[in-house]
Amino acid sequence: MQKEFLRALFLILIFGSTCLKLNAQVLLTPETVSQLNLAQDSLSTYSDSTITVKDDVERMAYNTMFVKKLIGALKTPHSFQFNFDSLANNVSFLKSPNLSFRIITWSLPFADGSYKFYGTIQMATKDGSLKLIPLNDDTQNILDDNSITNHKNWYGARYYEIIPVTYPSKNPYYILLGWKGNSTKTTKKVIEVLSFDKDQVIFGKSIFEIKKKPTNKNRIVFEYNKQNSMTLTFDKQANMIVFDHLAPYESNMEGKAEYYVSDSSFDGYSISYPRLYFKENVELRNDASSLDELYSTPRKATTLFPKRKH
């Protein structure tokens, strides 16, 4: 009797889950998908133009058209479900694993080698209506890259990976791995933390353990020679963020970021609540990927293990 009850309960759960998935799919009608595909075609053209044109004024004009078109597309009911796959080369759409929001980011390169970043957070709504939190890149006015910021003074970056950190009865937060560009001499990458306090967006959190330091950092920023390729990725199997160790290629260049390169060793942050623990000398079984400096997501490091002592 108990087995029959459990079997019936199992079938009900499967049926309910299937219905929920079908209902979610029905929300995006063929007409809506067609409308969003047309918008996506225009968005792709505008986005590509911001990269290919050489004049900064023209580039900004295309970006303005892109922003207006994107907001118009996102106003389409239930657009949260549309992935905008054709924009993947230039624009990152990262959904939180619990599907409560997605963060959309992209960069605008300028002739002098600098970058400006754009972004917005789209919240999932029950009725499919639009709820956006625009992100304003205020990097030039942020004097301390360790400061806690919000959507109005965002430490801009193009994010390519999102990692949730959860704990029972605690508000979750999300670790973001991002590419930040910088100048003609150096590139930056960032480990950012995103959290929500009611309707307020918060960037940065005191969770990063620093070697031989009594206090934690709110975010981690790497700056290195522009010709250097740097790995910064998440290994799910090890539950660790792993990255190249950066060092000056000449000892007398200590503290000058344009002389910092990867020294063939790797460090990492082991993810735990309430903070991330710094680990030295972890090793990738796979070589660092040539994709690490591309805008798309770098290849994942599949296996981490402590370095052997020789």
Rank of each mutant, 00 (worst) to 15 (best):
residue 2 Q to P: 06
residue 3 K to T: 08
residue 4 E to N: 07
residue 6 L to I: 13
residue 13 L to N: 13
residue 16 G to S: 09
residue 16 G to I: 11
residue 18 T to M: 10
residue 23 N to V: 08
residue 24 A to D: 08
residue 26 V to N: 14
residue 30 P to A: 00
residue 31 E to C: 12
residue 37 N to E: 14
residue 38 L to Y: 15
residue 43 L to C: 05
residue 43 L to F: 09
residue 46 Y to M: 02
residue 46 Y to R: 10
residue 47 S to A: 03
residue 49 S to E: 03
residue 52 T to Q: 13
residue 55 D to Y: 07
residue 55 D to A: 01
residue 57 V to S: 15
residue 58 E to A: 15
residue 59 R to T: 00
residue 61 A to P: 08
residue 61 A to V: 10
residue 62 Y to S: 02
residue 62 Y to G: 00
residue 64 T to G: 00
residue 66 F to A: 07
residue 70 L to G: 04
residue 71 I to M: 10
residue 71 I to C: 10
residue 71 I to Q: 07
residue 74 L to P: 05
residue 76 T to F: 14
residue 77 P to F: 09
residue 80 F to C: 02
residue 81 Q to M: 12
residue 82 F to T: 07
residue 83 N to T: 11
residue 84 F to A: 05
residue 85 D to A: 12
residue 86 S to E: 11
residue 89 N to I: 13
residue 98 N to Q: 14
residue 98 N to F: 11
residue 103 I to Q: 03
residue 109 P to D: 03
residue 109 P to K: 00
residue 110 F to R: 05
residue 110 F to E: 01
residue 111 A to Y: 09
residue 113 G to Y: 06
residue 114 S to C: 01
residue 116 K to G: 00
residue 121 I to T: 10
residue 121 I to S: 03
residue 123 M to T: 12
residue 125 T to F: 08
residue 127 D to V: 09
residue 127 D to G: 02
residue 129 S to E: 04
residue 130 L to K: 08
residue 130 L to F: 10
residue 130 L to D: 03
residue 131 K to A: 03
residue 132 L to Q: 08
residue 135 L to N: 07
residue 136 N to G: 09
residue 136 N to E: 09
residue 139 T to P: 04
residue 141 N to A: 09
residue 141 N to F: 14
residue 142 I to K: 07
residue 143 L to G: 05
residue 143 L to M: 12
residue 147 S to R: 14
residue 153 N to T: 04
residue 155 Y to T: 03
residue 157 A to I: 01
residue 159 Y to R: 06
residue 161 E to T: 12
residue 165 V to Q: 10
residue 165 V to R: 13
residue 169 S to Q: 14
residue 172 P to D: 11
residue 188 K to Q: 04
residue 189 K to R: 09
residue 190 V to A: 04
residue 194 L to K: 06
residue 194 L to N: 00
residue 195 S to C: 03
residue 197 D to N: 14
residue 201 V to I: 11
residue 201 V to D: 04
residue 203 F to I: 00
residue 203 F to N: 08
residue 203 F to G: 02
residue 208 F to Q: 02
residue 208 F to S: 09
residue 210 I to D: 06
residue 212 K to W: 15
residue 213 K to G: 00
residue 213 K to T: 09
residue 216 N to F: 15
residue 218 N to L: 07
residue 218 N to K: 08
residue 219 R to C: 07
residue 220 I to E: 06
residue 225 N to L: 03
residue 226 K to I: 01
residue 227 Q to M: 15
residue 227 Q to W: 08
residue 232 L to H: 05
residue 233 T to Q: 12
residue 235 D to L: 06
residue 239 N to K: 07
residue 244 D to G: 04
residue 246 L to E: 05
residue 246 L to I: 02
residue 251 S to E: 07
residue 255 G to H: 08
residue 255 G to P: 01
residue 257 A to K: 13
residue 258 E to P: 13
residue 259 Y to F: 10
residue 261 V to G: 04
residue 262 S to P: 11
residue 262 S to W: 06
residue 265 S to I: 04
residue 268 G to R: 10
residue 268 G to Y: 08
residue 269 Y to E: 07
residue 271 I to L: 14
residue 273 Y to I: 01
residue 276 L to T: 00
residue 278 F to H: 10
residue 287 D to Q: 14
residue 288 A to L: 05
residue 291 L to M: 06
residue 292 D to V: 06
residue 293 E to D: 15
residue 294 L to Y: 14
residue 295 Y to T: 03
residue 299 R to T: 13
residue 301 A to G: 13
residue 301 A to C: 11
residue 302 T to V: 14
residue 304 L to K: 12
residue 306 P to R: 10
residue 306 P to S: 02
residue 308 R to N: 10
residue 309 K to M: 15
residue 309 K to Y: 15
residue 310 H to Q: 15
